[in-house]
């Protein structure tokens, strides 16, 4: 494992810590898209089915369990916690997220790594992760008041994806010289979706202004 991959994973982990910190300390999930969080539960469960069939390392196994566990916990807080659920920005979180699932599944059937159940689900999870942030980005556009923790959460998620691209470039030249179309193209799409957000996040940070995304 190289430093970029580790930095990416740690940034991903940190984004989840920031989100859970916001939820647990402020007892609020305002500005957080339940739709995106539900998609992440599906992404992690379908990708990490290989927990039962493939062992890579203790690190990988532990991280997979953490990602599944925390994503379920976040959805639990947003749907079922009696205080937190009342702060959910329901009226603004209107992206029809379930519509993303069939195209990703069809794409996984057409372009899997191998035509087996676990490989099709793995490809599906890669494609779904690429677009899972869309409901969250839409919600941020509609939010007149984006708090610091919510902005940090989305920034860290985007940074994690950007670091994975650096990791792939590094691996390509130092390890295998193998082109990995499925994760690379999906990862590039996923990172590109953050471009607009990054622009306004960095601008607000430089000018010491409150983050606002133009609709």
């Amino acid at each position: 494992m190289n430093i970029f991959r580790l930095a990416g994973d740690m940034t991903h982990l940190l984004s989840i810590v920031v989100l859970l910190l916001k939820i647990r300390t402020t007892k609020s999930c305002a500005g957080i898209s339940l739709k995106t969080q539900e998609l992440y539960v599906i992404v992690f469960i379908t990708r990490y089915l290989d927990l039962f069939t493939r062992y890579v390392s203790f690190y990988n196994t532990a991280m997979k369990l953490v990602f599944i566990g925390t994503s379920v916990a976040i959805v639990w807080y947003m749907r079922l916690h009696k205080v937190v659920k009342q702060t959910y920005s329901r009226d603004e979180d209107t992206f029809k997220h379930y519509l993303l699932i069939p195209p990703c599944f069809i794409l996984a059937l057409l372009i899997p790594l191998e035509f087996t159940v676990t490989e099709i689900l793995w490809s599906f999870s890669i494609y779904l992760e690429a677009v899972a942030i869309l409901p969250q980005l839409l919600l941020l556009q509609r939010s007149s008041n984006i708090d610091n923790l919510t902005g940090s959460y989305v920034f860290l998620l985007g940074a994690y994806r950007a670091l994975y691209i650096v990791n792939w470039v590094y691996r390509f030249f130092t390890e295998t010289h193998k082109i990995r179309w499925i994760p690379w193209i999906s990862g590039l799409v996923q990172t590109a979706l953050y471009a607009d957000f990054f622009y306004y996040y960095i601008k607000s940070w430089k000018n010491h202004e409150k983050l606002r995304l133009p609709a």
Partner: peptide, 10 residues
Amino acid sequence: GVQAIEHDEL
């Protein structure tokens, strides 16, 4: 092989 590199990331 294919499996090893594709699936060693998270």
